[in-house]
Structures are given as C-alpha cells and as structure tokens.
Write a protein that binds this DNA or RNA. Sequence first.
DNA 1: ACAATAAGACAACGCTGTTGCGATACGTCA
DNA 2: TGACGTATCGCAACAGCGTTGTCTTATTGT
Lengths: 362, 362
Amino acid sequence: MGPLDRVAGAHDAAVLAVARRGEPVSRAGLADALQVTPQAISKILARLIDRGLMAEAGTISSGPGKPTTLYSIVPSSRRAVGLHLTRTRVHGVVTDLTGRVLERLVTPIPSGTAVPELIALLAETARTLAAHGDGELLGVGVGMPGPVDSETGVHLGVSPGTEAWHDAAIRDLLLAELGLPVLVDHDSRSALVGESWSQPGLLHNAVLLLVEDGIGAALCLDGTIVRGAHSRAGKAGHMVVQMGGEPCTCGRRGCAQAEHLAALRAGDEQRAADVLATVVLDLVRLVDVDRVVLGGRSVHAHHGPTMTAIRAAIDEGLSGPDSGHVEVLLSTRGVDLIAAGAACEVLEHEYGLPTSLVGPEQ
Amino acid sequence: MGPLDRVAGAHDAAVLAVARRGEPVSRAGLADALQVTPQAISKILARLIDRGLMAEAGTISSGPGKPTTLYSIVPSSRRAVGLHLTRTRVHGVVTDLTGRVLERLVTPIPSGTAVPELIALLAETARTLAAHGDGELLGVGVGMPGPVDSETGVHLGVSPGTEAWHDAAIRDLLLAELGLPVLVDHDSRSALVGESWSQPGLLHNAVLLLVEDGIGAALCLDGTIVRGAHSRAGKAGHMVVQMGGEPCTCGRRGCAQAEHLAALRAGDEQRAADVLATVVLDLVRLVDVDRVVLGGRSVHAHHGPTMTAIRAAIDEGLSGPDSGHVEVLLSTRGVDLIAAGAACEVLEHEYGLPTSLVGPEQ
DNA sequence: ACAATAAGACAACGCTGTTGCGATACGTCA
DNA sequence: TGACGTATCGCAACAGCGTTGTCTTATTGT
C-alpha cells in the first residue's frame, strides 16, 4: 500500500510493454530497456510470473557462460471485451492479453432502440463473447462516436441518429448489468489505442484519422493519448479548411467534414482526398507527429487516391531541410479497429504505464 | 541515487508548485493536495527548508488545539535568466524562483551579426543581468522563433532574416561561454511556460497563440507542454484555413499566416481577426483546451477586434449542450512574455514535475 | 578434467512514505 | 486559576522499492 507501489507498478507495466512486442526477452535486455539493474529485473519478473502474466520461454546460449533464460508474455492469462457501438450495430470482440482478437460478434441495433434495451443488447454481446477463450476477463471497453466523457462514461449531447442516447450513463448502466469494469471512450481514441497495441512502440507521437460518417481524430503525444479538458478532443472534422465554404451541421462553414462530404457527393474524389490531406498536414505541422494512421470505412473505400494525395501533400508541405520524416499508414486492424481498440483500452488501463507519478491537487 | 529519488523529487516539485501560488500553506493543506500523510509532508518540507527553497511563515490559529504553522516559498533563494532572441534584438530578464521579473535589459542586434558575435552578445546580456538580485543562478533559458531542437539546443533550417543562424548549436556555444546550464526552446513554448507560471494551476489544458511576424502556437495538454516528435510542434500559422487561397512562404496556399498578413495589408482588420478566430476555434475543437491565451506584438496592436472576433467565434462555434466553457485571455506578461517564459523554463526544468516515471526503451 | 565466462540468487543497505505513539501548544469550560 | 479536549507536530519502528556486493550455477573452450 506504500507509494513505492507506483514505481513497482510502472516497472511491471514497462516490462509487459516490452514483452508485448512478441519476441521473448532476456533479463539483460529488460535491464537495458528499463535502465535498472538485472537484480531489479529479477524481482519484477518474479512478481509478473507470480501473477501468471509472464513465463519462461526456453534458453539460448551464445558463447561461453550460463545460457540466457528467455521470458515471454502469457497471452491467454487475461482477456478483455471490446464493443464498437454505432447507430446501427454493435461490433464486439474478445482479445487476449496482447490485444489479439479471439472472437468477434456483430449484432444489429433495431432503429429506435431506447437506452435500457441498448444496454441489454451490449451486455448480451459481452456475455456471449466472454464464453470464448480462457483467462481472467478484465473488463469491457466501449468505443462510440460523438462526445463522450471518458471519466464518467456518459454520452453527451446529441448527434444525428443518436438522440435517444442523450446523456445516457453507459458506463454505470453496463457496469450494473455485467458486474465487470466498464470503460467508455470516443471511437477515434479507442482506435488509436488499438493501433498502438498492434504496432508496439511505434506510435509514440501519432495521429489517427478516422473517416466514417464524420471525420474524427485521435492524438498520441509523447506516448499519452490526448483527451482534453472536457474529454472532447478529436473533432478534427470541424477544423475549417475553407472559410466561407460549405455549410456544416455544426453551424459553421467550410469544416473539413462538410467539404469532404460535398466533394464525395459531387463525385470529386480528388477534392475529397485533398481535403483529408489538408487536415493531415495541418495536424502534422501543429503537433509534429511522425506517424499518421488512417482508418474508417470511408478511408478503406477510397484509400487509393486518399493515400496518394496525403503522401503528396506531406512530401510537398514538408520539403526543405527543416522538416522531419512523417510516415503515413493504413490501419492494420480492418473491421475490428475500434472494437479491438476498446478492448485494448481495458488492457492499457490495467497494465499500461501510469501517465505521471503525482501532481498537486486536481 | 536510488530510484526512490524520483518519488521524492516529484513530491518536492509538487509542494513547490502549490507554494508558488503565493499564499502560505499549511502541512495539512499540502497533505491533502498531495494525497500523502502529514508525516510525509514533514519529511518533504524538511528537505525543501534544508535546501533554502521554503521557510516558515508564521502561524495561524483557528479554534482549539495547537495553531497551524504556515510555510511559504523563498523567492530570493534561486534565480534564472531568460533571453528572448529575435532577428533584431535580445530581450533579457532575470527572475526569482517564482518567475517574477527582477530586471530587464534590451540589446539591439546589428544586422548581419554572425553566430560567434551573437553568442558573445547573448552571454554579455546574461552576465549583466546576473549581477542583479541574489540567490543561486540556475541557468539561462533562450526563447527564439523558428524551428529549434529543444533537446540539443540547435536552431534548425532557415527563416527569412536568420539565414546566418542556420544549424547554430546555440545551447552548446552559450554553455561553453557561460559555464551555466542553457536551455533553448521555441518562443511560443517559452511564452506558454511563462504564462502558466504567472497563472499557477490554470493552464492545465491551454493554447497560447503568439502573433508576431508569423503565427505560432504552444499547447499544454494534461499539464504537459507539447513538443512533438522532432520538437517542431506549434506551427499553427501554417494551418490551412482557405484551400487555394493566398500563397504562403511555406509553398502552400491559404495558410492562416498568409491569410492574416494579406488581410492586414488590405486594411481589413475584421478579416484578420476572423482568421485568428478560426485558428483558435480549430484548436479548441481538435485538442479541447479550456483556456486560450493570446500574446505577441500583433495581438496587442489589434487586440480589440481580435478578442471580439474570437469570443464571438467561440460563443457561436461552441454553442449547444455538448460543449464546455472556453476562456479567452490576453497574456499577462506584456513585453517580457517570452524572455520571462524562457527563465521559467529553466525553473521548470529544475523544480517542475517530472513528466513520467519510467518508460521502456526510448 | 579444468579454467574461463556469463547468468542468476541471496543478503545487507539506503531510501521512500506509512503507521503508531507520545509530546506540545492552544482554546474552552469548570 | 486550573483541568480537560483538541489539533499539530516529532520520534521510532516498519514494509517495500531498487542497489550493491558476494556467492552459486551452468555452459563453453582448452
């Protein structure tokens, strides 16, 4: 119960983060990665093995001396459920400790479903998924569009088509129904957590652009997901790229989302791609990320011209000696992007690195 | 030398952060703020008093029992020098431990000054300032425009008017000259650190928009200043607000900076203010900050219409139930904004909260 | 078979904040 | 005036962290 748990917990999380990369690791390698002595690694590994999270994975001998014992993560020791909630359906997955999808289940939501029935449907999906695989089930993550307070887990305000969910306390209701920890977050942030788990260590400073009905973004800066003061970060679709342009549902004109939609309706794929490229380049210049991940239905439908336009915009906009390299990638998780990400958020919450040690007052 | 220093250091920094607010604090108040026991506060305060950073500040008795002993920070115990470097001059200040400016000194830079002479001029300014006040001098902070690598302290690339500084290793050269710790950073980030020191605790999620020759921005998210993958975060001036609009020095069209400048040249103050308002609202929607601070020469010259336009845009763009409150403020530090901020960065480096405890590999 | 080498275990240490108990200083009430 | 309750604060013992120093163990090379 001491405050030393913080440093122990951080080290445990750091070892798991390294082990999650997939390859078995040696004690010496871990000592080097965490900048602690091999003795400390002994104690840390002992704790993790005791919890069943890691196990020995053979030995390797390179040269004289006692051969190195290797350790690896035990994927089947823990599981998490992730639910991607949209207007029309629930896309659910169970994942193991590494974030790998074990099983998926898609359930349509009848139009006009009220909150109690919605919760029942989510709970049913989670229970069905929980029957697959073994290992302790850590909790349920929910990724959903629209403004969401990830502290309290309530859906805020109204988006077109989800008026019935207004101010619904999704987290508390689902927690009461399931008796499991529940974590609710914005879909784009879930997606980014999922991507960062499937590409361990690469998305330290990255943006994920999620293009579905609207355009959302999630940012990871210095290894931390940006949530913002009111948990509303990521409305990249409402950045203005054309002052006085197309009217947007938000009341303003020339939002990226409105321009993108107008271009697609007009059949101008190039213009649509250019709008996305502008948003991406704006983000790169503003927060200086070195990786951009694209995901969502609309991106996959038009990924050819989109990727070309974005890469061209980046090459052009960041030419010159004063610019670092930026990599543009397509999301690697396909249809499970958000659901798997929501599951990874549960894992992250339990086994992730703590953001900071202490801080004064709030 | 143990790893426990981290937790002690974090607690020390947290106490200083609370004490820096100005009012004397009680042990009980600190224990509540840091979520530790009063006994721990005893040990933490003992360390800080031993270092001369804090001192007793009288007692107060409210009701029965032994009266509370109050403690406060000792501003004169430490000092820092901050230098704001521009094309034409160096604006320097010395501050005390709380970031208050003790003395200022402005020196013009002759056009065509090469790097060695520039360093000599900076060093001379720092030495002159160091003669004022007492208390240990912690180091020298430098805030400058253009891309800067704050890790290595070198000025990257070329901006109009500063071609001679290309790739200059400002930090190392100045360190060699002065024999003091030197910290180099982008001017907008310096400014934000300075503002957050003069408004302790308020700028946890905030943007500072710096409008001088160009438009720069600095972000503080979850209490951490955003630097980005290549230390180049903050080029808000090159966010596109008008696709296909005015050509910009960066090669693209319709950047906020280019549109702003064009509007000012055309004498259209309203349009210029609208451009800034668009940038601010974009930032608010993207990263969900709850405070926006405006600074820089151009803002102070036109702050009437600018503030009005931004407040109007925020009120209009964030109306509706799904939006949190956003406060728009003018910078409080006036001409010393960046220089004082650079000094505060030195203080922050020494006595600020560590960003994180540990992390795997890099 | 023997030495050299590298991995790992055990014990003692310094440090953190915590817990438990006692000393101190003040206001209140008899 | 004096005893009592109360809140503040200090001293001592404690658990847990990673570190340091020493020893054991297992493999390779001669």
